[in-house]
Simulated assay, not measured.
Amino acid sequence: MQYNKPPLTFQEQINLLQSRGLIIKDLDFAEQTLQRISYYRLSAYLHFFQEIDSSDHQYVPDATFEAVLNLYKFDKSLRMLIFNATESIEVAVRTQMIYHYSHDYDPHWYLNKSLFYDTGKHQELIDSITQYCQSKKVEEFIGHYRNKYTNPLLPPSYMALEIIAFGQLSRMYTNLLPSKTRQKIHTHFQLPNKFFISWLRSLSHIRNICAHHSRLWNIQLGESPKLPDRLKGKWLSREVLEDINQRNSRKIFTGLCCIQYLLEGIYKVKIKKMKIGKDRG
Rank of each mutant, 00 (worst) to 15 (best):
K270A: 11
D26Q: 07
K272D: 15
S88V: 08
L231G: 07
L177A: 11
K226E: 11
Y117M: 07
L22I: 07
P228R: 04
R238G: 07
H122E: 04
T64M: 04
P155M: 08
E162L: 10
T130N: 02
T254S: 10
N112A: 08
I259L: 00
F49E: 04
E162M: 10
Y145V: 02
D229N: 13
K113H: 13
I244M: 10
T9S: 15
K273F: 13
H57F: 13
K278R: 15
F116E: 05
T187C: 10
N112W: 01
E51N: 14
V60K: 14
S135I: 05
N245T: 11
R94T: 03
H122D: 06
Q134C: 09
D26S: 03
N208H: 11
C210K: 00
R201G: 05
K180I: 09
F189G: 03
I82S: 00
I266Y: 05
I14P: 06
R36T: 14
M1I: 12
L241F: 05
C133D: 03
V269W: 10
E124W: 09
L216C: 06
L16A: 04
H205R: 13
D229I: 11
D56L: 04
L125W: 00
Q260W: 11
L169R: 02
G143Q: 11
L203G: 07
L200D: 05
T187L: 08
R250T: 11
F166R: 01
H57G: 09
Q220S: 12
L216I: 02
I126Y: 02
R79S: 10
N112D: 15
T33I: 07
G233L: 10
A44Q: 08
K113R: 14
L17K: 00
D279E: 15
P228I: 06
N193P: 08
F48N: 08
I185H: 07
A30M: 00
D104T: 10
P6R: 12
L169W: 08
S237Q: 00
R146A: 07
E51C: 13
Q58C: 12
S157R: 00
A67N: 13
A30Q: 01
R280C: 05
Q168F: 09
E31T: 15
D26M: 01
I163M: 15
Q123L: 12
G255A: 00
V269Y: 12
Q18K: 15
Q168G: 15
G277C: 15
G255K: 03
T95V: 03
F253S: 15
C210Y: 01
D243F: 12
H122Q: 04
L169S: 04
P156G: 06
L111H: 07
Y132K: 08
F48V: 09
I209W: 04
N15C: 10
Q35I: 09
F116A: 03
Y72M: 06
D279A: 14
M159N: 11
N84C: 02
I37A: 01
N147K: 14
V269E: 11
T33R: 01
P156S: 06
R41P: 07
H186Q: 04
L115A: 06
N175K: 04
K268P: 05
F74C: 01
Y261S: 04
